[in-house]
């Protein structure tokens, strides 16, 4: 698909160029040390086209995604600022979107957000004024129609040129409905979509085939989420404790067959095999690497999966 650029996003340029995109993830610290953001950023610079800056993920208080995103951009990365509907109403969200773009943010990932029950403030009140699909609509309205939800007009120079992202999870239930929910995100105006961690390749293949069939991949760029398994323990934990993530037994058995000290290496190997398949899979425009607290492995994985050098756009 060829398109006109809607924003100044580097990620958009890579995707529009037809190159296989790579996005990373950076979790802001649970304190205000800018140094930590810079440290994590080091492993990602030059290895990814854009990096997701999580917004209080798992409902644990962290440095704001806007602040951490700006710090990451100072290190030479392009931020993909995540924004959840859990903590802000439409007033705060629209305001933050205007502010974020004014400060140089070009990508936004709209999410509903993990329920605060998981986090460190389970006593808090949640918002959920909009849901993620509504948020995508709002961002698009601000960018393309130049108005706020209130109808307030934005002058041409004051419209946030944001490349709009969403998330998709083929592994949540009911399985047959997932692609239809994604279709709503596409219809809402998502420019790109990043998936939950993929382990169950069969299910992912089924999902992508449907998405391609419905023409969704013609309208929106689909990135495949990859999180290498560090150990058998992690695989089992993901399988049993993370709602919406499925880990097939074949993968567990494969890790079981490897001595403990070699499991991380095997996990990377599995991830590289997956990435290879994604490169060839119809409808997949790139990968989203989520190396949670394992950022220093990003250089290894992008090298082994032959994702570097990143294109200059």
């Amino acid at each position: 698909m060829t398109r006109e650029l809607k924003t100044n996003s580097r990620l958009e340029k890579v995707l529009v160029s037809g190159a296989f995109a790579v996005t990373g993830e950076l979790g802001p610290p649970r304190h205000c040390s800018a140094h930590e953001v810079a440290e994590k950023a080091k492993h990602l610079v030059g290895n990814v086209d854009s990096v997701n800056i999580t917004d209080n993920q798992t409902a644990v208080v962290r440095m704001s995604s806007l602040a951490a995103g700006l710090l990451a951009q100072k290190e030479g990365l392009e931020a993909n600022m995540q924004m959840v509907c859990r903590d802000r109403n439409r007033i705060a969200m629209e305001s933050d979107l205007l502010g974020a773009h004014a400060l140089g943010i070009n990508n936004i990932l709209a999410l509903s957000g993990d329920h605060q029950k998981f986090g460190d403030h389970p006593q808090s009140k949640n918002v959920f004024d909009l849901d993620s699909i509504n948020l995508i609509q709002v961002i698009k309205m601000m960018r393309d129609e130049g108005r706020l939800l209130s109808g307030q007009e934005l002058p041409p120079e004051g419209r946030p040129k944001l490349f709009i992202g969403g998330a998709y999870n083929p592994f949540a239930d009911p399985e047959d409905y997932r692609v239809h929910r994604v279709a709503k995100k596409v219809a809402a105006g998502a420019d790109f979509l990043q998936s939950q961690c993929i382990y169950d390749m069969d299910r992912f293949r089924r999902f992508m085939a449907k998405a391609v069939d419905m023409g969704l991949t013609e309208k929106t760029y689909f990135l495949a989420g990859v999180t290498p398994l560090k150990s058998l323990g992690m695989a089992r934990y993901m399988k049993n404790n993370v709602p919406g993530i499925t880990v097939p037994d074949s993968l567990i058995d494969r890790l079981k067959g490897v001595p403990k000290e070699k499991q991380a290496e095997e996990g990377i190997k599995i991830a590289c095999e997956q990435i290879q398949e994604f490169k060839e899979m119809k409808g997949v425009a790139g990968v989203h690497l989520m190396l949670i607290e394992w950022e220093h492995m990003v250089p290894t994985i992008v090298k082994e999966a032959k994702l570097v050098p990143r294109p200059q756009v």
Binding site: D131, I133, P243, G244
Partner: peptide, 16 residues
């Protein structure tokens, strides 16, 4: 739990 109007979210698993 999230009052979503366009669900289900990615945390829906096995009907719960």
């Amino acid at each position: 739990s999230k009052s979503l109007l366009n669900g289900p979210c990615g945390g829906s698993a096995g009907g719960v």
